[in-house]
């Protein structure tokens, strides 16, 4: 089963107020994206990773693996920015291939590094939230923001039924394999097809049964939610505010430096 879902239930930050966690994660993320500075991104990445491993309690090895997942996509994306194929060599590097060059500019290299560091820092911010906060807590937060209930209800049901479907699919696969459903590629493919069909039919039947069960409990068209009260703590808010102020300071310093350089010209 998706490991990522289980981590948040054992996180040491699970019972921290959801609003606080959300604010910390998103303000920091926005800071990173706004500043676009490599130094800032590396700073955020370091702090967030330290919190994720040290405070939230994710095993370092597992955290590394999780961070490597987006890295693959990132490298593929940045390669396109950093490397050009051109008849003229650019200023950073140039490898002659036949009559052309595999070449890159200094600016391109810098943009690549900037992209990777900002993206990784952003991912670490999002991991902070998603690896410490169960989906249901997020839903109650959205509910308290008065998000349209059709959205929150859809999320609530989707999240729950995703697991039911996955579990059913896992059992069906086991049962197919017990009957040599993976004997060769052809059988395997046919089994996958059958699995998809029966899952689909099952989902429709289930939906009917679930609706009956909801009606049995006086469902009247809206799923009301009860917030589990975990009030925010003043100390935590202060720490978050302090950190965000620091980031803001860094951004401002960066911006003014840039203006100062313009003025020098």
């Amino acid at each position: 089963m998706p490991v990522i879902d289980k981590i948040c239930y054992v996180s040491r930050l699970r019972y921290m107020n959801t609003g606080e966690k959300f604010a910390f994660s998103f303000l920091t993320l926005i800071g990173c994206l706004v500043s676009r500075s490599v130094v800032m991104a590396l700073f955020v990445l370091a702090v967030m990773s330290a919190i994720n491993v040290g405070k939230s309690g994710i095993a370092p090895g597992r955290y590394m693996k999780l961070m490597l997942i987006p890295l693959g996509f990132l490298l593929a994306g940045t390669a396109a920015v950093m490397v050009n194929v051109s008849g003229e060599p650019l200023d950073a590097f140039a490898i002659p291939v036949g009559g052309l060059y595999l070449t890159g500019s200094k600016e391109g290299l810098f943009r690549g590094v900037q992209m990777v560091s900002t993206a990784l820092a952003g991912v670490s911010c999002l991991y902070f939230l998603s690896l410490s906060t169960p989906m249901t807590d997020m839903l109650t937060l959205f509910e308290s923001w008065r998000l349209p209930s059709v959205l929150t209800e859809l999320m609530l049901l989707t999240y729950r039924f995703l697991f039911i479907l996955l579990e059913t699919a896992a059992w069906m696969t086991v049962s197919q394999r017990s009957r040599l459903g993976d004997r060769d590629k052809k059988t395997w493919l046919r089994c996958r097809g059958m699995l998809a069909t029966s899952l689909f039919l099952l989902a429709i039947r289930r939906a009917g049964a679930i609706y009956d069960a909801m009606e049995s409990r006086c469902y009247d068209g809206t799923i009301h939610m009860l917030r589990e009260s975990r009030p925010p703590k003043a100390g935590e808010i202060l720490k978050i505010a302090g950190f965000e102020a620091l980031l803001l300071g860094m951004i401002l310093a960066d911006v003014t430096k840039w203006e100062w350089m313009l003025w020098m010209r």
């Binding site: 049901l157 999240y159 729950r160 069960a213 049995s216 409990r217 469902y219 009860l226 589990e228």
Partner: peptide, 28 residues
């Protein structure tokens, strides 16, 4: 008239136990 369904997976609609149990009372 309260019915406890045979298959709890049909009945449990929230991933949170607290929300799950609160569903009925809030509907009342």
């Amino acid at each position: 008239v309260g019915i406890v369904f045979q298959n709890p997976d049909v009945q449990l609609l929230s991933a949170s136990v607290y929300q799950e149990i609160a569903f009925g009372p809030l509907n009342l």
